[in-house]
Nucleic acid binder design. Structure first.
Length: 249
DNA sequence: AACAGGCTCAACCGCAGCCCG
DNA sequence: GCGGGCTGCGGTTGAGCCTGT
């Protein structure tokens, strides 16, 4: 095994990327795909290591990256998923289309963790040491409550959710269970649909907080106005709180 | 206006696991 | 089955920005 030597080579640039470098990388990948990351910088004419190129592409340049503030729903989803999955940022990111693991990790450490601490709800340190433990995929249903979760039976892979979930919406539910069956896979087009309609005349159908403007501010002790998404999570957890708890993931 | 402390986030580091010869 | 190379992941860092005094 051992560490890849590519970043140790002399003469490779480090630090913030310039617009020119970004452009070169985007141009190259859009034309040829990334292929072998290690070989990419040389082929593209970049004085960067492949690792750096990969990170820049995945975390910043990818066309499907959704920039901007996290919505209330996304923050809730992160909190819940973190409770269920632990620090498996890439898995959490996979449930939040358009968001990167790095971004989610940052949000968690800078805002959400602090927010939970403010409420005296210290997030547990999940005992998920092994990356190889199988996780049956599920997805957070972040759609509006007008499209209710799928009704179906409980499965053995239901994910135990948190007692501190929905802090941002003041919707704390104890020992709730996030059902895989309640959380259908998110269509990758979902976010683009939601956020493209955000500015449309149909935006009234969307949760009031989806634009991130009316976020909860724990430092000011302000709450979100009750909105449909809050009701949705409340319904979800209320509906499921008596269901059996999963064994540890 | 200046400074200090806090916060954010892009980027780096190093390990672990997967893949392939 | 083994070993080396590559990729992906999570933890950490630090520069720049923000906010309060």
């Amino acid at each position: 095994m051992g560490r890849s030597p590519c970043c140790e080579k002399m003469g490779l640039k480090k630090g913030p990327w310039t617009k020119e470098e970004d452009q070169i990388l985007v141009d190259y990948i859009s034309r040829h795909g990334h292929g072998n990351w290690r070989a990419l910088p040389k082929r593209a004419g970049l004085l960067r290591c492949g690792k750096s190129c990969r990170l820049r592409w995945i975390n910043y340049l990818r066309p499907d990256i959704k920039r901007g503030n996290f919505s209330h729903e996304e923050e809730d989803a992160i909190i819940k998923l973190h409770q269920a999955l632990g620090n498996r940022w890439s898995v959490i990111a996979a449930r939040l289309p358009g968001r990167t693991d790095n971004e989610i990790k940052n949000i968690w450490h800078t805002r959400l963790k602090k927010r939970l601490n403010d409420y005296g709800l210290v997030p547990p340190q999940p005992s998920l040491k092994s990356k190889s433990q199988p996780l049956k995929p599920f997805a957070m249903d972040l759609q509006t409550p007008s499209s209710p979760p799928h009704s179906s039976t409980t499965t053995s892979t239901d994910v135990h959710a948190s007692s501190y979930c929905s802090i941002s919406s003041h919707c704390v539910v104890s020992d709730a269970v996030l059902l895989q069956s309640d959380l259908p896979e998110v269509d990758e087009s979902f976010w683009s649909q939601v956020f493209s309609s955000e500015n449309s005349s149909d935006a009234g159908d969307l949760p009031a907080t989806v634009d991130g403007e009316s976020r909860f501010d724990s430092t000011k002790n302000e709450t979100y106005e009750t909105n449909s998404s809050v009701e949705f999570w409340h319904r979800l957890f209320s509906k499921t709180e008596n269901l059996p708890v999963l064994p540890e993931l």
